[in-house]
């Protein structure tokens, strides 16, 4: 293996997300049209849950009124605390555990789900202060939560998810369907 250093000074270097993460998707979550979620899986199995760029919140110049991690009277994702290397104490989430509810100024409300099984490591408190992060940088600084799948499930959790290609073909089909008169 030689060690010649290639200086890539072109501006087309892949982004941080593309370099280290694999994009997975769930489309039309809970049967609700276009409520697509994106799961960024790092090579170390950690997953970052974000809105897919097709999510209704990110369309038509919507403005976010509030983001609520209190998903029921008894449970707030903001109370999640993990300790130690083994991340003791984190809430364990199943595929369709709600992470938060987002309300827009037009009074539409959306629930964001965990999408995968795993331990909740953290939620993004920055979007509470600056909801615009969600609109401006949905796949980085506007992330919703970080989840650590079980070690033995790190491969199987993506079986139920859509690959980037599969998701894009669904989105393309959607556009065709919409453009056809009903």
């Amino acid at each position: 293996m030689d060690c010649v250093e290639q200086k890539d000074t072109e501006a087309n270097a892949p982004s941080v997300v593309d370099r280290y993460y694999t994009r997975w998707y769930r489309a039309d979550l809970k049967g609700k049209t276009c409520e697509d979620h994106c799961i960024l899986q790092h090579s170390n199995r950690i997953c970052v849950i974000t809105l897919a760029h097709t999510h209704p919140i990110l369309q038509d110049g919507r403005i976010i009124k509030s983001i609520n991690y209190q998903i029921s009277n008894g449970c707030s994702r903001l109370n999640n605390k993990v300790s130690g290397k083994s991340k003791r104490g984190g809430q364990f989430l199943t595929d369709f555990a709600p992470l938060c509810r987002i309300t827009c100024t037009d009074e539409t409300e959306y629930t964001i789900y965990s999408c995968i099984r795993g331990r909740l490591l953290e939620v993004n408190e920055n979007i509470l202060e600056t909801p615009n992060l969600l609109l401006e940088k949905p796949s980085t600084e506007g992330y919703i939560a970080v989840i650590l799948p079980k070690f033995e499930e790190s491969k199987s959790i993506t079986e139920n998810l859509l690959s980037r290609e599969e998701f894009e073909s669904i989105v393309a089909k959607r556009t065709v369907d919409q453009s056809q008169p009903t």
């Binding site: 300790s83 290397k85 970080v146 650590l148």
Partner: peptide, 13 residues
């Protein structure tokens, strides 16, 4: 600095 995501699987948050 929050524990970077790339090492979070093996280090405490």
């Amino acid at each position: 600095q929050k524990t970077p995501l790339r090492v979070l699987h093996r280090r405490a948050l």
